[in-house]
Structures are given as structure tokens and as C-alpha cells.
Amino acid sequence: MTREAALNAALFVALIGTALVAQALGEGFIITLATKAAIFALAGVGLNLVLGYGGLVSFGHAAFFGLGGYATGILASHAMSGVPVATLPFTLNGSTEMLAIWPLAIAASGLAALAIGALSLRTSGVYFIMVTLAFAQMIYYLAISWPAYGGEDGLSFYVRNTFPGLNTFDPIQFFAICAGLLAAALGLVAVLTRSRFGLALRAARQNESRVVAVGIRPYSIRLLAFMLSGMIVGLAGSLYADLNRFVSPAMLSWHMSGEIMVFVILGGVGRLFGPVAGALAYIALEHLLGGVSDYWQALLGLLLLAIVIYAPGGLIGLIAGRRHV
């Protein structure tokens, strides 16, 4: 086992172990923190596919996080009121079943990512950052100004959605769902980035014209990566909505895009478990430093600065060393 593989395993064990120990000690709040870390890590894994492996700095991934969240909130609230979400072109009833909600949340965020990616991938560099940001902000303002689903106040749905065979109200069982999906997403990204598709995606990050010269269009490779990335982040948004039983425009705002980016950069850009390390560190800092000072994010900022300057491989790179990508 390489050093990085050992570190990756240790990180995952730390996440699961924290939740299990908290369960044994009856510390429900710690389990919730671990669940939040797993969800943020999932969002980071999604972003890492484009940011880390594709070299595409998307500053708009809150759009997919929020859309996944809103899809969940809207379906749940309609299930409670009994009014269908839509009657045309077909009747779409609300649902409180995670297994019914996830595909819709993933589809909604995937379609949005396809549309946003198709337009923004025609630009590059700082323009790409700005265009993705602009699209996300558009959706953010739409959510604020759309009163049907709470507008600025957000949308509560009080009861966590259900999963067959599990009691999702039990924090440890909901954590198990989130950690399971995180593991699945990590497996998916590991397979994707090693495949032919991944080879082309990683090559396009390093030398676009070379990729064109061998007859591969980076645009279509990147667009697919962007869409898959949006779908993973949308699933994370759905889980986040269920964790809080509440969605609000804050999930769509650029702060959220920045936060997901922080998980990736803190942990290690283009490292499979980077977002896991980043999200764990973020949540731990929030919990530990948040108690010390309300301005804990200033310290986070300093840490991020140090990472970017002294350890571009993030926490993973710091411990496992650099590797060729």
C-alpha cells in the first residue's frame, strides 16, 4: 500500500470512527458533525473532478448543491401538502422517499450542469470563473425572488425523508447513508480518473493543444466531467437538505461555492481523498475554533493561505508527498 492509500484509508476510518465513538458515548451532536463532514466531502469530491482533475476552476458549484437541495425540499413539501409538484406534461407527485428524491435531485443538477457547462466551457481562465459564478448567482436570485418555495426565508420540511429498512431519524443511520454515498462517489471518481476518459481529462488540464493535436476535443470531455461533477454535488445538496430538513438560498450563494472550493484546496487539489481531508479539517476547525471565537474563519483564512503558499498539494500532499498526476 502506498503512503497515500494508507492515509486515505486512515481518513475514512477517522470519519466512521468519530461517528461510532460518538454513538457509543451518546454524543448525537458529534454524529451530526460527522454527517455534515461526509456531505461536504461528497460535494468536494464532485467539485474535485473538474477543479482537480480537469483544472477547471468552477466558482458556481453552489448552483448544483442548491438545486439538489431545493429538489429535495420541494418534493418533500409537496408530499406533505399532497399537491402535485407538476401536472404537465405528466403528473409529478411529491415524495418523501430518498430513493425517489435522489434521482430527481441528481437529474436536476445534472441538467443544470450540462447547460451551464455547455456555455461556460467556451471560455477559459478567469472568464470561466466569472461565467460559472454568474450562472450560480442567477439561480440564487431566482430562489430569493420565487415566493412559492419560501423565497428569502427558505423552505422547511420538518420531517427527514425516508430510506427503506433504515430509520433516518436516528443520526447514526442517516450518517451511514451519507458515508455510504461518499464511499460510492470516491469509488466512481477513482475509476473515472483512471479510465481513458480520465486520461484525456487530466491531459487536457496540462496541455490543451497537445490533446487537440492527437484528435481529442477537450470540450466534450470537459463537458461530461462538468455534468458528472454537478450531479455528485447535487446529491450532496439533497443530503444536506435532509440533514437540516431545511433549504434556503444560502445553499445557492457564492459563499457556498467558495466553501466547497475550500474543502478541495485545503485537502489537496486533484487528490482523490483531498476533499475528505479538507471537509474533516474544516468541520473540526469550525467546531474547535468556533467555540473560541466567532471570527474563526479568519484563522481558517490564514491556514488556507499557508496551504496555498507552502503546500500546494494540500493536507494530503503535506503528508503523503507529491505524486505525478
Binding site: 476518459f197 486520461l199 470531455i221
Partner: peptide, 11 residues
Amino acid sequence: QGASGASFRFL
């Protein structure tokens, strides 16, 4: 891979 035209293989 470029010459083969098959970049959309994922597994």
C-alpha cells in the same frame, strides 16, 4: 487513444 477515437470509456 486519440487515433482510436474512443475517449468516452469510463470503467
